[in-house]
Amino acid sequence: MATHRIAARFAHCAAENRPALVTFVMSGDPDPETSAEILAALPEAGADVIELGMPFSDPMADGPGIQLAGQRALAAGQTLGRTLEQVAAFRRRDDATPIVLMGYYNPIYIYGVERFVADALAAGVDGLIVVDLPPEEDDELCIPALAAGLNFIRLTTPTTDDRRLPAVLKNTSGFVYYVSMNGITGAAIKSRAAVGDAVKRIKSHTSLPVAVGFGIKTAEDAAIIGRDADGVVVGTALCVALGDSLVDGKAAPGSVEAVLSRVRELARGTRQARA
């Protein structure tokens, strides 16, 4: 049985007739303490679902904003074990906000898949997004994670056509993450109408909520994309806000607030999406 927090939270947002705000922050950025402080404050600022980045040295699908966040975290000594500890600490105070770990496969593979799945569940993780594990590699992590009760959230993209979509959705649970463009995180959405059409196309194949990410930066973006999508994902904008707030690469007094104020603004956007 998969954990229920994701389904419950999307249902709650749907009942309020608004998209869920899914916020991505990098675990350990810019240092463990500041990162924990940001994480703890995200729900109150308006984050409905939290994606927590597992930093990796070679983030091939990420643009400079998230690349730099990962580098800052690694420079501050972040490890996968510490990321899991951060989730456990968060979970002791918040048992409702879903947490989805997002990253690349190698650190998980080296940690050990079985051990990782067990430790993630114990820490209170609800789902996983692993960018470089397409359905063709489901035996690696997806199947063991689903069997243990973790959600496995799949990315679908503009190149995922109707022929391929069923295979992509087959072992997907929690929600579907629609990547709004062919590109890396942080690039600009070219056509909002096309994103809406794509969301409708995916929804005709699945009853899972569909969240849209890549390229959503402002409250206005969130409001527009959130008309059709069940969730809007914002990552680069938050990582950049944090990066810009640092002084000599270190957290400054305004750093936590720099992220939270962006989240509040985006949360306002999601509430205007269908107003």
Binding site: A61, D132, L133, P134, E137, T157, T159, R164
Partner: peptide
């Protein structure tokens, strides 16, 4: 070996 790539690239 294998095909450890992002979904965007998989169809290609």
């Amino acid at each position: 070996g294998g095909r450890f790539v992002a979904e965007t690239l998989m169809p290609l």
